[in-house]
Protein backbone atom coordinates (compact mmCIF):
# COMPACT_ATOMS: atom_id res chain seq x y z
CA UNK A 1 0.00 0.00 0.00
CA UNK A 2 1.44 3.35 -1.06
CA UNK A 3 0.50 6.57 0.74
CA UNK A 4 1.29 10.10 -0.27
CA UNK A 5 3.15 11.88 2.52
CA UNK A 6 1.35 14.86 4.03
CA UNK A 7 3.14 18.19 4.11
CA UNK A 8 3.81 17.94 7.85
CA UNK A 9 5.23 14.41 7.46
CA UNK A 10 7.54 15.60 4.69
CA UNK A 11 8.70 18.51 6.87
CA UNK A 12 9.37 16.05 9.67
CA UNK A 13 11.43 13.95 7.28
CA UNK A 14 13.45 16.98 6.17
CA UNK A 15 14.08 17.91 9.80
CA UNK A 16 15.27 14.38 10.54
CA UNK A 17 17.60 14.46 7.54
CA UNK A 18 18.96 17.82 8.69
CA UNK A 19 19.53 16.41 12.17
CA UNK A 20 21.32 13.32 10.89
CA UNK A 21 23.29 14.64 7.93
CA UNK A 22 23.34 18.42 8.45
CA UNK A 23 21.54 18.99 5.16
CA UNK A 24 18.90 21.63 4.36
CA UNK A 25 16.95 19.70 1.77
CA UNK A 26 14.95 21.49 -0.93
CA UNK A 27 13.19 19.13 -3.29
CA UNK A 28 10.46 19.24 -5.91
CA UNK A 29 8.07 16.35 -6.17
CA UNK A 30 5.93 14.23 -3.89
CA UNK A 31 7.00 11.67 -1.35
CA UNK A 32 5.27 8.32 -1.26
CA UNK A 33 5.49 5.95 1.67
CA UNK A 34 5.43 2.16 1.45
CA UNK A 35 5.50 -0.68 4.03
CA UNK A 36 4.45 1.58 6.88
CA UNK A 37 3.49 -1.26 9.16
CA UNK A 38 6.81 -3.03 8.76
CA UNK A 39 9.94 -2.44 10.85
CA UNK A 40 11.42 -0.36 8.08
CA UNK A 41 9.45 1.77 5.68
CA UNK A 42 10.52 3.01 2.30
CA UNK A 43 10.01 6.50 0.96
CA UNK A 44 9.89 7.20 -2.75
CA UNK A 45 10.29 10.51 -4.56
CA UNK A 46 7.99 11.04 -7.54
CA UNK A 47 8.28 14.06 -9.85
CA UNK A 48 5.64 13.21 -12.43
CA UNK A 49 2.77 15.63 -12.95
CA UNK A 50 0.23 13.20 -11.53
CA UNK A 51 0.01 9.61 -10.35
CA UNK A 52 -1.24 7.49 -13.26
CA UNK A 53 -4.34 5.34 -12.87
CA UNK A 54 -2.56 2.00 -13.26
CA UNK A 55 -1.74 -0.88 -10.84
CA UNK A 56 1.71 0.34 -9.79
CA UNK A 57 4.51 -2.06 -8.84
CA UNK A 58 7.00 0.80 -8.24
CA UNK A 59 6.63 4.57 -8.35
CA UNK A 60 9.39 7.17 -8.70
CA UNK A 61 12.79 6.50 -7.16
CA UNK A 62 13.53 4.94 -3.81
CA UNK A 63 14.69 7.94 -1.76
CA UNK A 64 15.37 6.43 1.64
CA UNK A 65 14.48 3.73 4.13
CA UNK A 66 13.53 4.71 7.69
CA UNK A 67 14.29 2.17 10.41
CA UNK A 68 14.02 2.91 14.15
CA UNK A 69 13.85 6.61 13.36
CA UNK A 70 17.11 6.54 11.38
CA UNK A 71 17.11 7.68 7.75
CA UNK A 72 19.10 5.48 5.34
CA UNK A 73 19.22 7.26 1.97
CA UNK A 74 19.56 5.35 -1.28
CA UNK A 75 22.34 6.49 -3.62
CA UNK A 76 19.82 8.81 -5.30
CA UNK A 77 18.58 10.06 -1.93
CA UNK A 78 22.17 10.70 -0.90
CA UNK A 79 22.73 12.63 -4.14
CA UNK A 80 19.96 15.04 -3.13
CA UNK A 81 20.94 15.20 0.56
CA UNK A 82 24.67 15.29 -0.08
CA UNK A 83 24.68 18.59 -1.95
CA UNK A 84 24.45 20.53 1.33
CA UNK A 85 25.32 17.84 3.89
CA UNK A 86 27.85 18.68 6.59
CA UNK A 87 28.07 15.11 7.85
CA UNK A 88 30.02 13.87 4.87
CA UNK A 89 33.33 12.16 4.21
CA UNK A 90 35.49 13.14 1.29
CA UNK A 91 37.14 10.20 -0.47
CA UNK A 92 39.86 10.08 -3.08
CA UNK A 93 39.10 8.88 -6.59
CA UNK A 94 40.68 5.52 -5.82
CA UNK A 95 38.74 5.13 -2.57
CA UNK A 96 35.53 6.02 -4.41
CA UNK A 97 36.07 3.27 -6.95
CA UNK A 98 36.74 0.88 -4.10
CA UNK A 99 33.46 1.81 -2.42
CA UNK A 100 31.57 1.38 -5.70
CA UNK A 101 33.04 -2.10 -6.07
CA UNK A 102 31.50 -3.07 -2.72
CA UNK A 103 34.55 -2.94 -0.48
CA UNK A 104 35.34 -1.19 2.80
CA UNK A 105 37.86 1.63 2.96
CA UNK A 106 40.28 2.69 5.69
CA UNK A 107 40.45 6.46 6.03
CA UNK A 108 43.20 8.55 7.58
CA UNK A 109 41.50 9.95 10.66
CA UNK A 110 39.57 8.45 13.54
CA UNK A 111 35.99 9.66 13.04
CA UNK A 112 32.88 9.61 15.21
CA UNK A 113 30.90 6.47 14.49
CA UNK A 114 27.74 6.68 12.42
CA UNK A 115 26.36 7.02 8.91
CA UNK A 116 27.92 9.61 6.63
CA UNK A 117 27.33 10.82 3.09
CA UNK A 118 30.29 9.69 0.94
CA UNK A 119 31.68 12.12 -1.60
CA UNK A 120 34.51 12.16 -4.10
CA UNK A 121 34.74 15.69 -5.50
CA UNK A 122 31.41 16.42 -7.18
CA UNK A 123 30.36 12.75 -7.09
CA UNK A 124 28.10 11.50 -4.30
CA UNK A 125 28.40 7.76 -3.78
CA UNK A 126 25.70 7.04 -1.22
CA UNK A 127 26.30 6.49 2.47
CA UNK A 128 28.90 4.63 4.47
CA UNK A 129 28.98 3.42 8.08
CA UNK A 130 32.00 4.76 9.89
CA UNK A 131 33.58 2.82 12.75
CA UNK A 132 36.89 4.23 13.91
CA UNK A 133 39.03 4.68 10.81
CA UNK A 134 37.00 2.29 8.70
CA UNK A 135 34.18 3.09 6.28
CA UNK A 136 31.97 0.01 6.07
CA UNK A 137 30.45 -0.37 2.66
CA UNK A 138 26.70 0.18 2.19
CA UNK A 139 26.59 0.07 -1.63
CA UNK A 140 23.73 -2.20 -2.77
CA UNK A 141 24.91 -5.30 -4.63
CA UNK A 142 22.91 -4.27 -7.70
CA UNK A 143 24.95 -1.05 -7.95
CA UNK A 144 28.47 -2.41 -7.55
CA UNK A 145 30.99 -2.40 -10.36
CA UNK A 146 32.37 -5.73 -11.50
CA UNK A 147 35.92 -4.48 -11.39
CA UNK A 148 38.27 -5.96 -8.79
CA UNK A 149 40.64 -3.64 -6.96
CA UNK A 150 43.73 -4.28 -4.94
CA UNK A 151 43.52 -3.83 -1.18
CA UNK A 152 44.12 -0.29 0.02
Amino acid sequence: MIRKLKKEDAEELFAEIDGQYGSKLVLEGMFLSKDEKRESRKLFLYTGDALPDVPAEWTGIHFCTIRDGVVFPSIEGAEAIGKTASKAIELSREEAEYIMSGRDVVIGEETQAGYYILKAGDDILGIGLVEGKKVINQTPKSRRTRQQYRTI
Binding site: L51, V54, E57, W58, G60, I61, S74, E79, R143
Partner: peptide, 17 residues
Protein backbone atom coordinates in the same frame (compact mmCIF):
# COMPACT_ATOMS: atom_id res chain seq x y z
CA UNK B 1 13.42 -1.09 -11.57
CA UNK B 2 17.19 -1.13 -11.00
CA UNK B 3 17.81 0.81 -14.21
CA UNK B 4 15.03 3.33 -13.49
CA UNK B 5 16.49 3.89 -10.02
CA UNK B 6 20.06 4.18 -11.31
CA UNK B 7 19.04 6.74 -13.91
CA UNK B 8 17.20 8.81 -11.31
CA UNK B 9 14.07 8.59 -13.49
CA UNK B 10 11.67 9.91 -10.88
CA UNK B 11 8.66 10.41 -13.19
CA UNK B 12 8.35 6.68 -13.87
CA UNK B 13 5.68 4.31 -12.58
CA UNK B 14 6.41 0.62 -13.17
CA UNK B 15 3.61 -1.88 -13.73
CA UNK B 16 3.94 -5.63 -14.09
CA UNK B 17 1.07 -6.71 -16.32
Amino acid sequence: VINVQKAGASNVTVTRR
